[in-house]
């Protein structure tokens, strides 16, 4: 995969750079290699997403980069500080919004923000001023004296983001920032993250297993699978590399027969580069999906397969992930794929 420079690459020293960063866990059943040895670079002002299914090792990477988990190998420099020799220096310069809530239900919104600011060494007066700023910019007005246990999911997530930003860090880690949020709260939070970068130049490294989130928010995506980065690039470039269109044909109960039919006739179907099946759906990569659709359906009708639905779309990051790993982001069941000429 070619690495493409982000739109605003920033000059000079990267905000974050890792070299062979890895983590193994020793369990009773042997050694689990959670993260295999990650080399990655994040430049100032970038929003970079680690995209991968649950269990790919994204959170383990985050926990290492935020000093919560000691790496078992490799090294990292984060905002100019060495992760292993100067963890305290790293802690003072990064914000971390974990997947777990991170707020005490018995504390009020204001208490949590002021407390976190003071833990970062801000004097009380500045901690209060900073709290007021964040309450304002993250739409938490009117909630300052509310206990965090009484907030809605979206409100609480915005508070957690505010807590991560309280010391104005140049680099923020967001671990699955919108998991469990309703669609409105999600796009609202995306706007906040974009604005953070656009107005303050904050660098953001986030993890997500939502391809739409990576697509909508990230300048650059690192696709993570089984503890390794398997591909990286701008979302548009990654999708472009898939090439052409994605045709999906629904054939409930008959999808495997549909797949083998189409695979057999692939020579007669110009521009079709891949035919594969996931559950009741056959997925076809084609140079021109609209044009080839009629031919695809003719092959199926001649073979006696009934298709209940057809859909043509531009490739998504989901398709990128499928192409690279042979698996869907959502489930980990392997696909039955057939490469050209099989």
């Amino acid at each position: 995969m070619t690495y493409s420079e982000p739109q605003s690459p920033g000059t000079g020293i990267p905000m974050l750079a890792t070299e062979g960063l890895k983590r193994e866990f020793h369990t009773r059943n042997g050694t689990v290699k959670a993260v295999l040895g990650i080399d990655m670079t994040v430049h100032p002002g970038e929003i970079v997403g680690l995209l991968g299914p649950n269990g790919a090792g994204k959170t383990t990477m985050m926990r290492m980069l935020t000093t919560l988990l000691a790496p078992t190998g490799g090294q990292a420099r984060i905002v100019g500080h060495d992760l292993r020799s100067d963890p305290a220096g790293v802690r003072g310069r990064v914000g971390y919004v974990a997947q777990a809530s991170g707020v005490d239900p018995a504390c009020t919104v204001e208490e949590e923000l002021v407390h976190q600011a003071r833990l970062h060494g801000l004097p009380l007066r500045r901690a209060r001023a900073r709290t007021a700023d964040l309450v304002d910019s993250l739409d938490l007005e009117g909630l300052t004296s509310r206990r965090t246990g009484e907030l809605s999911g979206g409100q609480r997530r915005r508070l957690e983001v505010a807590i991560g930003l309280v010391h104005d860090p140049p680099l923020v880690f967001l671990d699955e920032p919108t998991t469990g949020l309703d669609p409105q709260s999600r796009s609202n939070l995306w706007n906040h993250v974009r604005r953070l970068r656009d107005t303050l130049g904050t660098t953001v490294l986030l993890t997500t297993h939502y391809m739409d989130e990576a697509d909508a928010l990230c300048d650059r995506v690192l696709i993570v699978d089984h503890g390794a980065i398997v591909s990286e690039g701008r979302p548009s470039d990654l999708k472009h590399e898939v090439g052409g269109d994605v045709v999906r044909i629904e054939a409930p109960g008959d999808a495997e027969r549909a797949r083998s039919l189409l695979a057999c006739h692939q020579d007669e179907l110009p521009g079709v580069s891949l035919v594969e099946r996931a559950d009741d759906t056959v997925r076809i990569l084609a140079r021109d999906g609209e044009r080839i659709m009629v031919d695809l359906l003719r092959v199926l009708v001649d073979g006696g397969v009934h298709a209940s639905g057809v859909n043509v779309s531009r490739p998504t990051l989901e398709d990128v992930f499928l192409d690279i790993t042979g698996r869907s982001l959502r489930d980990t069941a392997p696909l039955t794929a057939s490469a050209p000429g099989v």
């Binding site: 935020t66 000093t67 919560l68 305290a88 220096g89 802690r91 003072g92 990064v94 971390y96 974990a98 997947q99 777990a100 809530s101 991170g102 707020v103 005490d104 239900p105 976190q116 833990l119 970062h120 060494g121 807590i163 010391h167």
Partner: peptide, 16 residues
């Protein structure tokens, strides 16, 4: 309890 709800972790990622 603090560890479980992530509060402790959040405090550990400060220079305190």
């Amino acid at each position: 309890a603090e560890q479980r709800n992530g509060v402790l972790e959040r405090m550990r990622v400060t220079p305190v």
